[in-house]
């Protein structure tokens, strides 16, 4: 430990502040009903059914992510499929 470290030991380690912020988000979500992500499997299935009407989709190529924030949450749905299949359907 250098002499400088000795005097600076307190700097840059305020993990309590992070803890508080994380808790505020988490508690708000808990109170609004368990995070509300229970519907995701069903949503995934229904979305896929709709998309399949138009394109052939491999189930393993679907990624659903939910990022929950205090005021705003982002639901991201990524569906990958070969470009050729899209063309095939469009022509048919």
């Amino acid at each position: 430990m250098s002499l400088l470290d000795f005097f600076r030991r307190n700097r840059g380690r305020r993990s309590a502040e992070t803890a508080k912020q994380r808790l505020q988000v988490l508690v708000a979500l808990d109170r609004s009903g368990g995070g509300g992500a229970d519907f995701l499997p069903l949503l995934q299935k229904e979305l896929l059914d709709v998309i399949r009407k138009y394109v052939e989709v491999d189930e393993r190529r679907v990624k659903i992510e939910l990022e929950q924030g205090k005021d705003l949450s982002v639901l991201e749905v990524n569906v990958e499929f070969p470009t050729a299949r899209l063309r095939a359907r469009a022509v048919a």
Binding site: N10, R13, R14, S15, A16, E17, A19, K20, L23
Partner: peptide, 9 residues
């Protein structure tokens, strides 16, 4: 030291 939640928090 800022490493534990305060009572007030």
């Amino acid at each position: 030291r800022g490493d534990m939640l305060r009572l007030e928090d």
